[in-house]
Design a protein around this nucleic acid. Structure first.
Length: 886
RNA sequence: GCCGGGAUGGCGGAAUUGGUAGACGCGCUGGACUCAAAAUCCAGUAUUCGCAAGGAUGUGGGGGUUCGAUUCCCCCUCCCGGCACCA
């Protein structure tokens, strides 16, 4: 046995052993209970960063822990290989995206393997291979035929200099990142998944996901955003010159009588019509089209509007209401038009104030009906009663949102509460055929067309006579050509006749292949199912998927809480309904949801540093190349680039990413200390769900602990030994088993940092012993090794074998708590006076209440504070404390 | 702007879910070993008053409920994630 801990040798020996025994090959037919443990697959950006190490170590700990508990574990790995960074790299380094991607995969696979993850590599999936995306294309054609995929126009960020569509990430302060040109919105045709058709199921099934964090379910619920309201139609005023109605949606039809104007989006047909004869309005509309499409930008920009000079008629009272164009109304949401009730909506109120539009109060507190009786309502009543209140009062806003008021100034609706007014107005609108109740979702259909090269080709052929024709099965896959030049201007495929020239599958005439590719979220929406059918050539999955699905434990970053996880849930339902999981899948609860349990890992964040070039473009610098200067309190005051010593700008502390170049490569730590240290440190640094600001001080400590474990093993093996006293043995056994009990609970709630701490406590307890030969020391050490095995698998395997516990710790069961060791005769109780700690008391376990009260009162500290007086009350918390109230 | 989360010693974090705040580790200080250093081991380490015994204060800030609040309620500040074309 090596005298010193040599992680390199130990780790390569252990990994060799696992390889030789094919230890992590998952059986499709085992009769043990299955445990499908899945970590979100990485984008092959080049190198691993600490976020990956965290994610995959968490997954590996869970996989190995469940293996020890007797499960048939499957833990796969793959590559989310299509995406924008490959095209950027292609431009920066003049290397084709495919080549760049595959070489990144090769490097990162080696890195992952060096971490000693218990992965079944025979199931590896790479999304940019035709074997994979062929089935995605197949599914696309099925969904297109069934109408679940359709085509419509939609806004994109357009760079007028590069003549190309930009991702939101590529729009910086309203300008294209490469050209610096002002970005504008442009409408282009795109394919959409009809995810809204599944909105209700996606919403209601969240209630069944008991294994998901509440915060993720809340975010998804809010994202789907089911609301109950009314469609309301405002007939055109005669001045518009045509007949028809302007349709709006509102969740507050009870305030309809307070509507004083309507507002439409800049792209709305009425706006276009009005602008035809109004140059100033045309200019304003053009201004609204400037800037990107990101919702955060729209929501934070200054609210602006302009009167069109046109009017609509109020559907109930016949008043003429002006039509305004407003930049805060989004064409893509609802009808692209809203009714404005400035008295009762913050945004409408501010807009009305700014442009001098009338404000009409139609909701007030109702004293007679006893409404508005909450604290908020009371305040609102006092302020709002019979007088026009100021909307800016926050009290009023909240109270209003609570829907506790009644209608006023509303004619026949006066005195009705929210629900009564809602119903009455809906009935009256329906009678006029000018509106009806409607359930609306915030969720929009999922546009998947991308005018980019490095993605899965959309399998559609455009024929002048037959229209959009899906590519027939026998012509799939539509293979993405790999020899291309990326210029950053326009879509490369659209410049390749050899790709797009084709014949129509229906009529055989000349036709043009679609040159857009799919959103890369599509690939990541079904990969979890593909792992369960490696090599399948007959469909997306085969029979084997029915054994493994659904995923028992999914692990990934919290940043995926909405989009990826919602799309994957949607896809699972699509695959179920198309029959991918078998004809009976629709009847089985089992195929409703893809991920039974979800662990959302907190992000590993790190500071960002950058310099700006002459045109203000940011050049991001890696933290590893930057020296930070701090003040006496440790706050950063400045930073310089090590290479040239000149200052750099300190950005925010953000999640590690390729685009901000703030990823920290774990390789240095693995090379210097070994994978076990990297894994141990990662698990010890913070609980998995918590965000972690990267800092490598403490890696040293993790390494030191593993050295101590090794040294203890060496001593245990070599020592002649001496005996410990029975008392010492008893207290150590108590300590080990109470720590173990807690560690088991921590493991089950995924709090791995305290599991590591438990291992440290056990080693400390064993280290305090003087004798080393006893069976119970060996037993204690075996508990320590098995506790650590999921976290640091290499060193524990080496010691397990060296000390003769067995050949393979993978076969060892999780250690059992010896409840007998936990029995105590005496316990320590805390003595408090008025809730403040004043002393402690050692008593027999079964001392009765009366006796405890007597002992507490007799306590020196209590006597002193009591000063001869009498205790008011004595509170006893069994096994914990006695609080004397005086 | 909207939605979700977070804030505890010099640092990472713990606290059996309303019951001893600071487990475990890092760092730091002192000591042992060494010619010396590294490594290792031992001791101390929330702040503050005090020679000490002991006291006071303390979980982002302000208020509240309670015998007792890091934990529950109300208000506020700052930080992080997401916002549909980064993945």
């Amino acid at each position: 046995m090596q005298q010193n801990y040599t992680p390199k040798e130990i780790e390569s020996a252990a990994q060799q052993h696992w390889d030789n025994s094919q230890a992590f090959r998952a059986s499709d037919t085992s009769d043990k209970p299955k445990y499908y443990c899945l970590s979100m697959f990485p984008y092959p950006s080049g190198k691993l960063h600490m976020g990956h190490v965290r994610n995959y170590t968490i997954g590996d700990v869970l996989a190995r822990y469940h293996r020890m508990k007797g499960f048939n574990v499957m833990q796969p790995m793959g590559w989310d290989a299509f995406g924008l960074p490959a095209e950027n790299a292609a431009m920066a380094n003049n290397v084709p995206p495919a080549k760049w991607t595959y070489s990144n995969i090769d490097y990162m696979r080696k890195q992952l393997q060096s971490l000693g993850l218990a992965i079944d590599w025979s199931r590896e999936v790479t999304t940019c291979t035709p074997e994979y995306y062929r089935w995605e294309q197949w599914l696309f054609t099925r969904l297109f035929e069934s109408g679940l995929i359709y085509k419509k126009t939609s806004s994109v960020n357009w760079d007028p200099v590069d003549n190309t569509v930009l991702a939101n990430e590529q729009v910086i302060d309203g300008r294209g990142w490469r050209s610096g040109a002002l970005v504008e919105k442009r409408k282009i045709p795109m394919y959409f998944f009809r995810i809204t058709q599944y909105a209700d199921e996606l919403l209601s099934d969240l209630d069944k996901l008991d294994g998901w964090p509440e915060q993720v379910k809340t975010m998804q619920r809010n994202w789907i955003g089911k609301s109950y309201g009314c469609d309301i139609e405002f007939p055109y005023d005669a001045g518009i010159g045509k007949t028809g109605t302007l349709k709006v949606y509102t969740t507050r039809p009870d305030t309809l009588m307070g509507a004083t104007y309507v507002a439409v989006a800049a792209e709305h047909p009425l706006a276009t019509q009005a602008a035809a004869s109004d140059p100033a309005l045309a200019t304003f509309i053009a201004e609204c089209k400037r800037g990107g499409t990101a919702e955060a930008d729209m929501a934070t920009m200054e609210k602006k509007g302009m009167n069109t000079g046109l009017f609509v008629t109020h559907p109930l009272n016949g008043e003429k209401l002006p039509i305004w164009v407003a930049n805060y109304v989004l064409m893509g949401y609802g009808e692209g038009a809203v009714m404005a009730v400035p008295a009762h909506d913050q945004r409408d109120f501010e807009f009305a104030q700014k442009y001098g539009l009338p404000i009409k109060q139609v909701i007030a507190a109702n004293e007679d009906k006893g409404q508005g009786t909450t604290e908020k309502g009371q305040g609102a009543r006092d302020k709002g009663k019979n007088t026009l209140f100021l909307f800016s009062s926050e009290e009023w806003q909240e109270w209003y949102a609570s829907k506790e008021g009644v209608c006023v100034n509303s004619g026949k609706y006066d005195g009705l509460n929210f629900q009564q007014a809602f119903d009455a107005i809906a009935v009256d609108l329906a009678a006029e055929k000018l509106g009806e109740k409607k359930v609306q979702f915030r969720l929009r259909d999922w546009g998947i067309s991308r005018q980019r090269y490095w993605g899965c080709p959309i399998p559609i052929i455009h024929c002048a006579s037959c229209g959009d024709v899906p590519v027939p099965d026998d012509q799939l896959p539509v293979v993405l050509p790999e020899n291309v030049t990326i210029t950053g201007a326009g879509s490369p495929l659209a410049k390749m006749p050899e790709f797009y020239e084709c014949t129509c599958p229906k009529c055989g005439g000349n036709a043009k292949r679609e040159t857009d590719t799919m959103d890369t979220f599509v690939e990541s929406s079904w990969y979890y199912a593909r792992y369960a059918s490696p090599g399948c050539t007959t469909g997306l999955v085969d029979e084997r998927a029915r054994h493994w699905l659904p995923v028992d434990q999914y692990i990934g970053g919290i940043e995926h809480a909405i989009l990826h996880l919602l799309y994957a849930r949607f896809f699972n339902k699509l695959m179920r309904d198309v029959g991918v999981f078998g004809p009976d899948a629709k009847q089985s609860e089992k195929y409703n949801e893809p991920f039974t349990n979800l662990l959302t890992q907190g992000m590993v964040i790190a500071p960002t540093f950058y310099r700006e070039d002459t045109v203000g473009k940011k050049l991001w610098l890696n933290p590893a190349d930057v020296d930070v200067v701090t003040d006496a309190k440790g706050r950063p005051t400045g930073a310089t680039l090590r290479a040239d010593g000149r200052p750099v700008i300190i950005g925010g502390t953000e999640k590690m990413s390729k685009s901000k170049n703030n990823g920290v490569d774990p390789q240095a730590i693995i090379d210097q200390y070994g994978a076990d240290t990297a894994r141990l440190f990662m698990m010890f640094a913070a609980p998995p769900e918590q965000q972690l600001e990267w800092n490598d001080s403490g890696v040293e400590g993790a390494s030191r602990f593993l050295k101590r474990v090794w040294n203890f093993g060496v001593r245990l093996k070599n020592s002649e030994g001496s005996a410990n006293t029975p008392d010492f043995e008893k207290s150590t056994r108590f300590e080990i088993h109470s720590v173990l009990k807690q560690a088991k609970a921590d493991m089950d709630k995924h709090q791995f940092n305290t599991v590591v701490s438990a291992a440290m406590k056990i080693l400390n307890a064993l280290d305090r012993l003087t004798g080393t030969k006893e069976a119970f020391v060996k037993e204690g050490f075996s508990i320590l090794l098995r506790l650590l095995a999921p976290i640091t698998p290499h060193i524990t395997q080496a010691l397990w074998k060296e000390l003769g516990y067995g050949d393979d710790i993978l076969q060892a069961p999780w250690p059992q708590v010896d409840e007998n060791a936990l029995v105590q005769d005496e316990i320590e109780l805390v003595i408090q006076v008025n809730g403040k700690l004043r002393g402690s008391l050692l008593v027999a376990k079964d001392t009765d209440k009366v006796q405890l009260e007597r002992l507490a009162l007799a306590h020196e500290a209590v006597q002193k504070l009591l000063a001869g007086g009498v205790a008011k009350k004595i509170i006893i918390v069994p096994g914990r404390l006695i609080n004397v109230v005086i």
